[in-house]
Simulated assay, not measured.
Amino acid sequence: MIKGAYAPVISGVKTVLSCAALAAGMAVPAMAKMAAAPASAPEALPARLVCHDDIFVPYVMLNQGHIEGLNVDILREAATRLGISIEFRVMPWRRLENELAKPQGSVDCAFAMSRTPQREQYLEFGKAPLQPTEYALFVRQPEGMTASVTKLDDLAGKVIGVRAGFRLPDAIAAGAAQGRWTLAEVPSDTANFQKLALRRVDAVLADSSVGLYTLKQLKLADIRRLVPPLTRFDTYLVFRKNAASPALAAAFDRELKRMRQDGTFARISAAYLGVPTLEQ
């Protein structure tokens, strides 16, 4: 028992120490709970994804009703690595663009789209391109003969075959607007090159890889590609903008980069083109 003048002081100290101990005891479980709480998990990716593109040999092809192709194989591999079941559907290019632009359109994923300010308003573009694209002119040049067309200006007054819905290089679009040449739209690259072989058009504008692949399949030997290409740009996998689209685009970016690094891109490309993609 504590007596005398020091008793109240010591008693007060004991009270303060008791309160501090109580507070500390309460704080320990609380801190333990905070430490045990997991960090906020990244946004979950969808289990299934439906992606659209037009037929664009050899990137997207129909083989007895089955969709296959260079870009199809690349995206299927990336989706598998992400644990996503991906389904591919084909849609004419103009309809596809219209559906993507609608606020309540039926398409949430598409490829391979070039980046434009207008499209960026309603589409989520990743940072890793799916494919680089070169647009070049193809002209007739029989073996042993001098080419009558060696550059774009040589096509003044002539007809250039273009695939419907193509993003035209500025030089082609400007010349058509000025009436320097005429553009003839066709639904497919195969039809375009067949018209060129039959002299129904004087040149064909096409993706370089697509053009070379199509010529090989059609066995057209008297058509050559003009160099350098008219333009070069990247194309991307895109998603309709919503709360989940940034995480989805970032996830595919990550896997596409890894596939370039581990040689998967080059391997898939060589299976279709016999050579790596333009970027390799």
Results as ranks from 00 to 15, higher is better:
1 M>T: 11
2 I>G: 03
10 I>Q: 05
10 I>R: 06
10 I>M: 07
12 G>R: 09
13 V>H: 01
14 K>A: 15
18 S>M: 10
19 C>E: 08
27 A>S: 08
27 A>H: 05
29 P>H: 04
30 A>M: 03
31 M>K: 02
35 A>D: 03
37 A>T: 15
38 P>S: 09
42 P>M: 10
44 A>C: 00
47 A>Q: 15
47 A>G: 15
50 V>I: 06
50 V>K: 07
53 D>Q: 10
53 D>V: 00
55 I>P: 08
56 F>Q: 12
58 P>E: 03
63 N>E: 14
63 N>Q: 14
66 H>Q: 15
69 G>V: 02
71 N>P: 06
75 L>M: 14
75 L>V: 08
79 A>D: 10
80 T>A: 15
81 R>M: 11
83 G>V: 14
84 I>K: 05
84 I>A: 10
89 R>F: 07
90 V>L: 02
92 P>I: 08
93 W>E: 13
94 R>V: 15
96 L>C: 06
99 E>K: 07
100 L>P: 04
101 A>G: 02
102 K>Y: 05
102 K>E: 13
106 S>W: 00
108 D>G: 07
110 A>C: 03
113 M>G: 00
113 M>I: 01
115 R>K: 14
118 Q>H: 09
119 R>H: 01
119 R>N: 01
122 Y>G: 14
126 G>F: 04
130 L>A: 01
131 Q>P: 00
131 Q>V: 14
132 P>R: 15
133 T>V: 15
134 E>D: 13
137 L>M: 10
138 F>H: 06
138 F>V: 06
139 V>R: 06
139 V>I: 11
142 P>C: 09
142 P>H: 09
146 T>P: 03
146 T>Q: 14
147 A>Y: 06
147 A>F: 07
148 S>Q: 15
153 D>G: 09
161 G>I: 04
161 G>L: 07
162 V>K: 12
163 R>A: 10
163 R>E: 13
164 A>K: 06
166 F>M: 12
168 L>P: 01
169 P>H: 05
173 A>T: 03
175 G>M: 06
176 A>D: 09
176 A>G: 09
178 Q>V: 00
179 G>F: 03
179 G>D: 03
179 G>H: 03
181 W>R: 02
184 A>M: 14
184 A>Q: 13
187 P>A: 08
189 D>E: 14
189 D>K: 03
192 N>S: 15
193 F>D: 09
196 L>A: 05
198 L>M: 13
199 R>A: 13
199 R>C: 04
203 A>Q: 11
203 A>H: 11
209 S>I: 08
210 V>T: 14
212 L>Q: 15
214 T>Q: 15
215 L>Q: 06
217 Q>C: 02
217 Q>S: 12
219 K>V: 11
221 A>M: 01
223 I>G: 04
224 R>Y: 02
225 R>Q: 12
226 L>R: 08
229 P>K: 05
230 L>W: 06
233 F>R: 13
235 T>K: 09
236 Y>A: 04
236 Y>W: 01
236 Y>M: 01
238 V>D: 01
238 V>L: 00
240 R>H: 07
242 N>S: 09
245 S>N: 04
245 S>H: 03
246 P>I: 06
246 P>H: 08
247 A>N: 04
250 A>R: 11
250 A>W: 02
251 A>Y: 01
252 F>S: 09
256 L>A: 10
257 K>I: 12
258 R>Y: 08
259 M>I: 10
260 R>A: 10
263 G>Y: 08
265 F>S: 05
267 R>D: 09
269 S>P: 00
278 L>T: 11
279 E>V: 05
